[in-house]
Design a protein around this nucleic acid. Structure first.
Lengths: 146, 146
DNA sequence: GTTTGACATTTCGCACGCGAAACATAGTCT
DNA sequence: AGACTATGTTTCGCGTGCGAAATGTCAAAC
């Protein structure tokens, strides 16, 4: 409330993201200890099993180094497996384990609920505006910044 | 692109927040090494110098334990000072140092630029919708979740 | 006055994410 | 073949944020 108006949007974005993130982790914690970031990997691999680590990082808009740690933790949790690419000695391919596949299914229902919550109380047009605004951030604040 | 539609909004929110955050830190890094979180504290203290740590945490929607670390780093950078409250032996009051005040001024211009960037290409009504949506997250995903 | 409970802050261990630098392998150019 | 560059991944050190448990202090009830 005492936050000056010129920080409003940036503040709301920051706080909102954290709220949703924690809420997801709270929900998921009950259903297997998944975190939001890990669910992202699970969903991506659901479509692209066997993808490179770099491809996953791109798809989730993460730095490769962030993906390394994420995969480490998920490997430890046996949700995912790293296998060397037979063609390219540098590359690592990611595969869902059975446990990962199961977790993915369990998470899907949760995610649907989240999405409903996210759009609740807003018309389709309004959600469209929001989506457009959020997308615009990607181009307005590019990775290799200035 | 390969992200399933039911993850779209949540993904955009997550990625967008990170983009903006990193962009700010890139900008600020040139001008004194401030981070986004630290600027938040600086702005808050600009209005409420001498506030309790808990009050700052509330205002920035952070867990108290997160504020402790943040203040630790800012104290180390001499942006801020902790002084024991004379009336209440438990409480710590936060004060801007001269360096902190200077940094706050330097940051202000940067923040204005960010804000302009954030709203660029959208009408006032559209920004209103976005702000309303972001605000709604606070109530839809409350702290003490379920 | 002591106990009891509320409150402010800190400590701890964890997950997340970044950038820079280090590696290792691949591919290319000569 | 040998040097050079590009690419995929990892390592390192850092900042950020959380929740749970610990600490110290206050305040009210007994």
């Amino acid at each position: 409330m005492s936050v000056p108006p010129d920080r409003r949007l940036i503040f709301l974005l920051n706080a909102g993201q954290r709220r949703v993130q924690r809420w997801i982790e709270g929900k998921m914690a009950a259903k297997g200890g998944l975190t939001a970031a890990q669910s992202g990997v699970l969903f991506f691999l659901g479509d692209q099993n066997g993808a490179l680590i770099g491809e996953a990082a791109d798809a989730l808009d993460l730095a490769p180094s962030a993906m390394t740690g994420l995969i480490d933790r998920m490997t430890r949790a046996e949700l995912v497996e790293r296998r060397a690419d037979p063609k390219d000695g540098r590359a690592m391919r990611l595969y869902l384990t059975d446990k990962g596949r199961t977790a993915r299914e369990a998470a899907k229902a949760g995610l649907d609920g989240i999405n409903a919550h996210l759009t609740e109380g807003f018309t389709d047009e309004e959600i469209g505006v929001v989506a457009r605004w959020l997308s615009s951030l990607q181009t307005k604040f590019p990775k290799g910044d200035s």
